[in-house]
Amino acid sequence: MVKGTETSEKIGTRRGIQSFDIGLSVLEAFVAANGPLTLTQLGETLGMPASKLHRYVSSLVSAGFLDQPRRSGAYDLGPRALAVGLAALNRNDFVNRAAAAMEDLVARTGVTGTMAVWGNYGPTLVRWERGTDALTTALGLGSVMDLFTSATGRIFAAYLPEGSVKAFLASGIGVASGAVGASEDFSSLDDMRSEIRRLGYACADGQYIPGLFAASAPVLNWQGDVEVAVTLVGRSKAVTDPEGEILPLLVETARNLSVLDPASSD
């Protein structure tokens, strides 16, 4: 008798978990959609009958996670979903999370890592994690990186809003801070942005600092803008080899830290 009761409880638990999983799948479908979905469209997306999904959708509407704002019968994310999303965003500390991930990245690759954020004067280094190669360079915390020639700077040039980048270039602040060369040709900006966004990373093969090779990838926020540039720097071209081990690992790390996938940021 006890054995039968335990079996029933296990079945009930499994059913409860399955229902929760389906409910999460419904929410994920609305997150991925570009707009409201009808039950028919939701069923096609999830590969489930609309009749089966109706009770899940009704429960989510009752809980405030979904809403039905239009007479068309389509549903969309509700106020509770917005509240959860905003709470998660407020707790998403990009810099600290990236710092922890960079320590592991440097340990696994052996090359030096840096982190940069956008400051008043341009891309600014805020963390330096030395690898086993023990590089010697004049760069340090607080250094401002060049937008066009450094891998770090190129990430900001590509993944900040276009209007913000062009306004910064027009202001002359970058020339004064060293973020932009005095004779830099700004006409290359659009092509550079397109190429880096296509690749999902930026490289500098001994152009910014002779003898050093750097690769950088963006940590993107919910709007697709860069919050942190994570960069690896070394003496070997292996750092910038897309077919090697280091660059793909860097890109994967930045992607995992991002709210929005760099590959879909356009």
Score class of each variant (00 low, 15 high):
Pro49Gly: 02
Leu125Asp: 01
Ala151Trp: 06
Glu243Pro: 04
Ala88Thr: 02
Trp128Lys: 05
Gly234Tyr: 02
Leu189Asp: 02
Ala107Gly: 15
Ala101Phe: 06
Asn120Thr: 00
Ala170Ser: 11
Ala157Ser: 15
Ser265Gln: 12
Ser150Pro: 10
Ala81Ser: 14
Val228Ala: 06
Ser177Asp: 06
Leu53Asn: 10
Leu135Asn: 02
Ala229Met: 05
Gly174Cys: 03
Thr231Asp: 04
Gly142Trp: 09
Arg91Ser: 14
Ile17Gln: 09
Pro79Asn: 07
Met115Gln: 09
Pro36Cys: 03
Gly23Trp: 03
Thr132Glu: 11
Val126Thr: 12
Gly163Pro: 02
Val31Gln: 13
Gly178Gln: 05
Arg55Asn: 13
Val219Asn: 05
Ser164Val: 14
Tyr159Phe: 15
Leu53Ile: 08
Ile209Asn: 04
Asn256Phe: 05
Leu24Met: 14
Gly119Val: 03
Val95Lys: 11
Val251Gly: 00
Gly73Ile: 10
Ala151Pro: 08
Gln18Val: 12
Ser150Trp: 06
Leu53Arg: 09
Gly16Asp: 05
Leu37Val: 04
Thr13Pro: 01
Arg71Gln: 14
Val251Pro: 00
Gly43Lys: 08
Ser62Phe: 07
Ser59Arg: 12
Gly234Asn: 00
Ala238Tyr: 08
Ala158Ile: 07
Thr231His: 01
Ala29Lys: 11
Ala81Arg: 07
Arg255Leu: 00
Glu243Cys: 00
Phe20Pro: 00
Asp266Ala: 15
Gln68Glu: 06
Asn34Ala: 15
Leu260Glu: 03
Leu189Gly: 00
Ile11Cys: 04
Ala32Tyr: 00
Ala182Val: 11
Ala29Tyr: 06
Asn34Lys: 15
Ser143Glu: 01
Gly206Asp: 03
Leu160Thr: 05
Met102Ala: 13
Asp133Phe: 05
Asp205Ile: 01
Glu227Ala: 09
Ala179Asp: 03
Glu162Lys: 10
Thr136Gln: 15
Arg154Thr: 04
Ser265Val: 15
Gly73Pro: 11
Gln18Ile: 10
Val230Met: 14
Leu250Ile: 07
Thr240Asn: 14
Asp190Leu: 07
Leu249Thr: 14
Met1Asn: 13
Gly172Trp: 05
Ser62His: 07
Gln18Trp: 09
Ser51Phe: 09
Leu39Arg: 08
Ala157Leu: 15
Arg127Met: 12
Glu195Gln: 13
Gln41Pro: 08
Thr38Glu: 08
Leu250Asn: 06
Gly153Pro: 05
Val95Thr: 13
Ala204Trp: 04
